[in-house]
Amino acid sequence: MATIKDISLRCGVSVSTVSKALNGYQDISEATREMIIKTAHEAGYFPDANVRALKMKKTYNIGVLFSTLTKHGLRNEYFAHILASFKEKAAKRGYDITFIEHNIGNRKMTYLDHCRLRNFDGVFIACAEFTEPEVLELVNSDYPVVTIDHAFNEAISVLSDNVEGMRQLTQYIIDQGHRKIAYIHGTKSSVTHNRLVSFHNVLKENGITVPEEYFVEGIYRSAESSEELALRLLNLPDPPTCIIASDDYAALGVMNTARRMGLKIPEDISVAGYDGISVAQALEPKLTTIKQDTDKIGSEAAKQLINLIENPMSTSLDTIYLKVQLVKGASVRNLNKAD
């Protein structure tokens, strides 16, 4: 079995540098750390986890809370990419991940109880009902916490720039000549709030007023919910010419309803989504949407959480905003062009 000295010789660095890389110290470059960890794995070197935990007073295990009301769960493309990227980044820094559960064997427990049982070093809240008392208990605990899709003052949050994303999407739809724009937004959260504020601001900047019935609350990433809501919108006496869904899965539900009603997209009704999942770009017409960088969200969440675990006094509890990209697709009709 390879030793730390063997790794240092292969990498051309000191034994202490190898030790720092394997134990998560920050005073070496990320490139050097990754090179050392890669070499260690290739050489078959793995430090004894129990000895390492005792020495460093850490378990090198991160708890991941993924609780969703939708049936897609981990098969949801958006979250699957985020979690895969998070796991990959954490592994490069020497950390394992374990999903946080309510039940361990026959024993029922809270999320916080599970974290204490497993002695996690930190917690990544990837998907949850953020107002649940158990989730709030976890966020307000002593555990280092990073969240996505919701911002807490007590935790680091990694979010796409939802204000800018909704601004780009709404302005593009308006530039295509639409004035009757409906919005099926998600449930109450900081993400929903920021998108709604941005949507209203862009309408106001363009001198557009839409009726209250054009704003309906749906369920994030639920095609079934948006199908029912789209039916309600399309049956209004003065229906919208474009419907923005809360996300791409919800947009697929809107498109399903439109087609069942005999409507063509985008000739009869325009549809837009949010997230940029690949399946929405494989359909005809391709969906107009905002693409979130899911790989970056996952890797940045892992980076920030591990920095908070290893250097709590020099890591700020900030909200980090990542850039988004408008994907124009073909699901929004240009009303400015003459038929």
Rank of each mutant, 00 (worst) to 15 (best):
T257D: 12
K204T: 03
T39N: 12
M261N: 10
E267K: 14
T315F: 07
K71R: 15
R116V: 00
L308P: 10
T68H: 02
G186H: 08
L234A: 10
P144S: 05
L69Y: 09
H114A: 04
K337F: 03
L112M: 03
S8N: 13
T32N: 08
T70Q: 12
E88N: 09
L65V: 01
R333F: 08
Q292E: 00
N194P: 15
N50E: 12
G218W: 05
K20R: 14
N235Y: 06
N235A: 01
L83N: 04
M255F: 06
A258D: 09
R75V: 00
L229K: 14
D268L: 06
E30A: 10
L335W: 05
I97W: 05
G165E: 03
P240F: 06
T98K: 13
E42V: 03
G165W: 06
D293V: 00
N206R: 15
R260T: 04
I36H: 11
Q171I: 03
E284D: 14
K92Y: 01
V145H: 08
R118S: 12
A84S: 09
N61Y: 10
V216I: 14
K5T: 07
R167E: 01
P285V: 05
D121W: 12
P211I: 08
L54Y: 08
I148K: 08
A338P: 11
V327K: 06
S141Y: 06
L263G: 07
H114G: 00
A230H: 02
M35S: 15
T257P: 13
K108P: 13
K5W: 09
K87H: 01
V18E: 13
I4M: 15
T131I: 05
G165A: 06
A230K: 07
T68Q: 10
T209H: 11
F120L: 02
S246Y: 13
F86D: 00
L196E: 07
T98W: 10
L252D: 04
I28Y: 11
S314T: 13
Y183Q: 05
C11Q: 15
L252K: 13
V163A: 01
I297W: 00
